[in-house]
Amino acid sequence: MTETPNPHIVDADTLTGEMRPIRRVVIALGSNLGERMASLQGAVDALADTPDVWVTGVSPVYETEPVDAPEGSGAYLNAVVLADTTLAANRLLDRALAIEDAYGRERTDEVNSPRTLDVDLIVVGDRRSDTDSLRLPHPRAHERAFVLKPWYDLEPDAVFPEHGPIADLLGKTGLEGLTHREDLALEIG
C-alpha cells in the first residue's frame, strides 16, 4: 500500500474501528549535542510509552563522526530501535517529531546541523511514501553504516526494501568511522 497525499483516497488502516495491521518498524536514533546518551535513552523510553507501539529490540550504541555536517560538529551516538506498531506511518512520524521536540531539537535550514536528538523512520512495514514530510523507506539509510550496523546487530538477516540484504549493504558501506561503545547500553523500559 502506498502513502498518498490525495485527500480523496482513504487509507483503510487509519479508519476508526477498522483492524489495523501490525507493522515491523526500524527507527534510527542519533544525538551529537548535549547529554547524548540521555537523549537516546529518553527516545527509547518515549517510544516504549507510545500507545500501539511495542519496542522489541534496541541495538548496541555506536559513536560516529558526523556525515556531511557543518565543520566543528561533534561525534554522534547512534542506535536502532525495532518495534511493532499498528499506528499509521504518518502518526508514527508525528510521534517521532514530538519526541525530538521534547529533547530540544532545533530545526534549521542547514543540512545535517548538530542536534540533541534525531528520530528517523527507516522502514515501516512495507509502506512506501515519497512526500515532502515522509519518505519511506528512508532514502539514504541504505548507504549509512551508522544505521545498517546497529540494525544488523538486531536482525542480521533483515532486508532493506528495494536495496537488498542489510548484510550486503553493510559490506558495501564498510565500518570505517564507526566505534562500538561497549561502555554504553540502552534499555527497554
Rank of each mutant, 00 (worst) to 15 (best):
P7A: 03
P7C: 04
H8D: 12
I9N: 00
I9E: 04
D11Y: 10
D11S: 02
A12W: 12
A12E: 14
T14A: 13
T14C: 05
L15A: 04
T16S: 10
T16L: 15
G17V: 01
G17E: 09
G17A: 08
M19C: 06
R20H: 08
P21H: 06
P21T: 06
R24E: 13
R24A: 13
V25C: 15
V25F: 05
V26R: 02
V26Q: 04
I27H: 07
A28Y: 10
A28W: 10
L29F: 12
G30R: 14
G30M: 15
G30S: 15
G30E: 14
G30D: 13
S31N: 11
S31K: 07
L33T: 03
G34D: 11
G34F: 15
E35N: 15
E35M: 06
R36M: 01
A38W: 00
S39I: 00
L40A: 07
L40E: 05
Q41F: 04
A43Y: 05
A48P: 00
T50H: 06
T50Q: 15
P51T: 10
P51S: 08
D52M: 07
D52E: 11
D52S: 10
W54M: 05
W54E: 12
T56K: 13
V58P: 14
V58W: 15
V58Y: 15
S59I: 07
Y62A: 13
E65Y: 00
E65D: 02
E65S: 03
E65T: 00
P66A: 08
P66L: 00
P66S: 00
V67C: 02
V67A: 04
D68S: 06
P70T: 05
E71K: 09
G72Y: 06
Y76L: 11
Y76T: 05
A79H: 03
V80S: 11
V81F: 14
L82E: 13
L82I: 04
A83G: 10
T86G: 03
T86Q: 05
L87A: 04
A88H: 06
A88D: 02
A88V: 01
A89D: 01
N90K: 08
N90V: 08
